[in-house]
Nucleic acid binder design. Sequence first.
DNA 1: ACAAATATTTAGCTTTGCCTAAAAATAATA
DNA 2: TATTATTTTTAGGCAAAGCTAAATATTTGT
Lengths: 217, 217
Amino acid sequence: MTLAEENYLKAIFHLELESAGEVSTNAIAESMETKPSSVTDMVQKLAEKKMLVYKRYKGAQLTESGRKIAAGVIRKHRLWEVFLVEKLNFHWDEVHEIAEQLEHIQSEELITRLDQFLGSPDFDPHGDPIPDKHGVLKRTEKKLLAEIEKNHQGVCVGVKESSAEFLQYLDKKKISIGTKITVLGKEFFDGSMIIQVGSEQFFISHKIAENLYVQTV
Amino acid sequence: MTLAEENYLKAIFHLELESAGEVSTNAIAESMETKPSSVTDMVQKLAEKKMLVYKRYKGAQLTESGRKIAAGVIRKHRLWEVFLVEKLNFHWDEVHEIAEQLEHIQSEELITRLDQFLGSPDFDPHGDPIPDKHGVLKRTEKKLLAEIEKNHQGVCVGVKESSAEFLQYLDKKKISIGTKITVLGKEFFDGSMIIQVGSEQFFISHKIAENLYVQTV
DNA sequence: ACAAATATTTAGCTTTGCCTAAAAATAATA
DNA sequence: TATTATTTTTAGGCAAAGCTAAATATTTGT
Ligand SMILES: [Mn+2]
Ligand SMILES: [Mn+2]
Ligand SMILES: [Mn+2]
Ligand SMILES: [Mn+2]
């Protein structure tokens, strides 16, 4: 697998999680910041390699092999992110770009040993689950903060977006993984909320609330 | 700099250390396991980018910028090798291929932190010096075992070749960095030697002796 | 059901890095 | 010095991965 092929498989894997069924050419193009015509080319090549099944004008769906490779890349990405944060003391908003590069390093043994060195972590610094060596992703029952009702609470277990801007916003608000959040008020019109974090209470927009994963206790 | 460009600069850097003056197209091609015509192409491109000066039919010579980039890649390669051996417990004959990939990861900050994490090592697992962040390589006075006279001794401080085969041979003979070696006999005809390592004494060929660096005490 | 809008694919080009075969320059040798 | 031999460059091509513009399909709205 080339670097480009791995990136396509990874993107399709993520898109399949978001919504079942075939993944459209346009959706792939958007998520990879490339043109639909480029996607068609690559998707045809990956179909020939049996990494996915592709039906003209319908979309792509990963095969077992394709899914395995994608999960392997994601496993590497997330393990490296743990390394960067836990061992090199990077902040969680600084690691994604570097992991985008490290995820393509080819060596089974390296990942086996890295995993061991890190104590076989289950989650990356953004709360995302790390696939096991067979590509199996354990599903956790987490929900978006936006789904929490007034006067209920949850513990932050991850972020949906992990852009530096969003993560820095969370830092400013003292929200990180493990933080307890209570919904004090919820506006039906725009989905905005008043929440309590520690001793502070403040307003957050719907956009924030639907990018934060919590687990109810 | 692309991956290919970095590899060319690195190869030329190493060749310049071996013998001063311009580096020939053929020498580069051989060391990179590619064809001379490909080298001509790349060398012309690197000359346009001011990474080296190139005179047709004469060869290439790195500029200050080129040398700096090459040293940076070598610094990364060697730091990663230290990481693999010291932290992930790889054996010294297993790390080169992986470091060939890791050396191209782009992030100043990553290398700064990795260096710190490793305790700013001066040498890699093969005894090669690690350039500092400005690309400066400190020269150490080491000689080849082949240059040591009968009845003299030295401490192994590095290897010239670092192929897995050679390193495994050294393991078998219990030679590693720090090992004391005494030359008991030397055959002028073929440069072979009888040496003492610990309590064992045995025969080594000239090829072995000229790939092992020692420091005389 | 048909026209308009949208999504997707195809055709044709570009760049990077490599290759082979042929031409040109330099080095070696008789 | 003249002729080989070797080294290096040039010319012409190829595969990967991208792009734009044009052609087709599909979907949507009336
Ligand atoms: Mn990431
Ligand atoms: Mn992550
Ligand atoms: Mn190495
Ligand atoms: Mn080394």
